[in-house]
Computed example of a mutant assay.
Amino acid sequence: MSSSRLPPLTVKEAIADLGDTRLWYWDTGGSGEIVVFLHAGSQSGAGWEYQQPAFVAAGYRAIGYSRRGYLNSDSGSIQNPGVASEDLHRLLQHVNADRIHLVAVAHGGYFALDYSLSYPEKVISLTLASSMLGVRDEAYDAMQKRLRPAFFNDLPVDFKELGPSYRAGNPEGHEQWKKMATAARPGGRVMQKLKNPLSWQSVEKIHPPVLLMTGDADLYVPPSILRLQLSHFPAAESVVITEAGHCANWEQPEVFNKAVLDFIRKHSAR
Rank of each mutant, 00 (worst) to 15 (best):
G29M: 08
G30W: 02
G30E: 06
S31E: 12
G32P: 04
V35Q: 02
V35A: 15
V36N: 01
F37E: 02
F37H: 05
H39K: 07
G41P: 07
A46C: 05
G47Y: 02
W48C: 05
E49G: 12
E49T: 13
Q51H: 08
Q52E: 15
P53I: 04
P53K: 12
V56S: 15
R61H: 11
A62H: 01
I63A: 04
S66L: 03
S66N: 07
R67S: 13
R68N: 09
R68H: 08
L71A: 09
L71N: 01
S73K: 03
S75Q: 13
S77A: 11
I78D: 12
P81W: 04
G82R: 01
V83I: 15
V83F: 12
A84S: 15
A84H: 08
E86P: 00
D87T: 11
L88Q: 03
L88R: 02
R90F: 03
R90M: 07
L91W: 08
L91H: 10
H94S: 15
V95R: 03
N96M: 04
D98I: 02
D98M: 02
H101S: 09
H101M: 05
A104G: 10
V105S: 15
A106H: 10
H107D: 15
Y110E: 14
F111G: 04
F111M: 15
A112G: 12
Y115Q: 02
S116K: 04
S118P: 01
S118D: 14
S118Q: 10
Y119M: 08
E121V: 05
E121P: 03
K122P: 00
V123M: 08
L126V: 11
T127K: 00
S130H: 05
S130N: 12
L133E: 01
L133A: 13
G134K: 07
G134D: 09
V135H: 00
R136V: 10
E138L: 09
Y140F: 09
Y140D: 12
Y140K: 08
